[in-house]
Amino acid sequence: MAFILSTPLSIWSAHALAAIYTTTYVGSIYVSKGARLSFSKAKAHLDFGYFRPKEKYERWRDDPDVIRARLAAVSIATIICCALATGPVRAIAGNELDRFTLLPLTLSHLGITFSGLLPFLVTPVLYLGPLYSRFLVGTLPFQRNWTYQEDFVSVFFSVTGIRNYVVAPITEEVVFRACVLSAYYLANASRARMILLSPLAFGAAHIHHGWEVYNRYGRSPAALKRAVVGTAFQFAYTTVFGFYCSYLFLRTGSVFPPIAAHVFCNVMGVPQPGYDIGQRPDRKLAIILAYLSGIFSFVYVLQRWTYTKDSLFWS
C-alpha cells in the first residue's frame, strides 16, 4: 500500500519528529511520578565494581514498583507516538487518503506486516559462538543444567523479565525503528541515511541511565568516571545494534524481525568469548571456531535471508 511522495517531508521535519518521538518515550518515565528515581545525596567511596547499599526511601531502576510504573509509562508513550505517526502519512497522502485507508496505510508504514521466517533466524546465526558455549555447559533449554522453573518461568515472567524481554523490546522497536524510520522514509531520506542516522536517537535515549549509575556508585569522582564510561559504551552498543535493526526493518518492511532480534539479544547478552573459553578451556579451539563461524555465516545470510519482495522501504 505505497503511494508516490509528491511533496515529501523535509529532512528537518523528520529530524524534528525523531526528536519528538524520543522525548515522548524517554520523557514519559519522568512525567510519571511513580516511574521517577530518587537517590540520597550522600557521597561514598567504594571498592571498584561495588555499588552502595540502597537506602530505605530511595527508588532505584530495578525496584518492582518503579518497573511497573515505567512499563505503563512507556506503553502509553508508544501509543502516543504511533498516533502521532498518522499525521505525516495523512499530510503526505493529501487528497488521496480517506478515513478508511488512513489506519492500514499508517500500519504499513509502521511495519505492522509479516515477513517470512528467515529474517528471524539471522540473529541466532550471529550468536553461534555463545549458543555453542551454552551447549557445552548444558544451559540451553532442556539440557541438564536448565530448569523450567528457574530458567524460564522465574526469568521471563518476573516483572524484570517482562520489562527486559517483552515491553522494552516491543516499545523501543516500535518507537525508535517504526516511528522514526517511517518519518525519514516520508522525507525521502536515503537508505544509508536512515540506517546510519536514525539509530542515534535510540542510542541517545539510553544516556539518562548514566545518572543512576553515578548515584548508585556513590556520587564520587570514580562514580562519575564509571557513569561516563558506561554510558559511552551503552550509547555505542545501542547505536550499533540500532544500525542492524534499522537494516532489518527497512529490508523486510516489518517491525517484527527487529523485535525478535531485540528480545534474543537481551536474552543472550553481549557475547563474551573470553568468559566462554574460561568455562570450558578444553574446548578453546572449538569455541573460537564457533564464534568465527557465526560471524562469517551472519555476513553471508544477512542480505540473502532478509530479502522481502514486498517491503515498502526496499522496493
Rank of each mutant, 00 (worst) to 15 (best):
V89Q: 11
G49Y: 09
I162S: 04
D47H: 03
M1V: 14
H109I: 00
Y132Q: 07
F142C: 07
Y21W: 08
F100I: 10
L121Y: 09
T24K: 04
K284C: 01
D151G: 08
L46M: 07
D282T: 01
L292E: 11
A201K: 02
A77C: 09
S75F: 14
I195L: 06
M268W: 03
A77V: 03
R193V: 09
P124T: 02
L97R: 12
T22S: 11
F51S: 05
A91I: 11
A168F: 13
R177G: 13
A290R: 01
T147S: 15
Y25W: 13
I207Q: 02
Y25T: 05
T78D: 05
P119F: 01
A286R: 01
A227P: 00
F264V: 00
T160N: 05
F233W: 11
L126P: 09
I112Q: 06
A168D: 04
E172C: 14
F3T: 11
H45S: 11
L196A: 04
G34C: 04
I287Y: 01
E173H: 04
L292T: 13
Y307I: 00
T239E: 13
Y291M: 04
R36G: 06
L186M: 08
W314S: 03
D62I: 15
Q234P: 02
H45M: 07
R304I: 08
H45T: 07
Y244G: 10
N266A: 01
A201G: 10
A178F: 06
C82A: 14
L9N: 08
W12R: 03
A189I: 01
A286V: 00
R163N: 12
K309I: 14
Q234N: 03
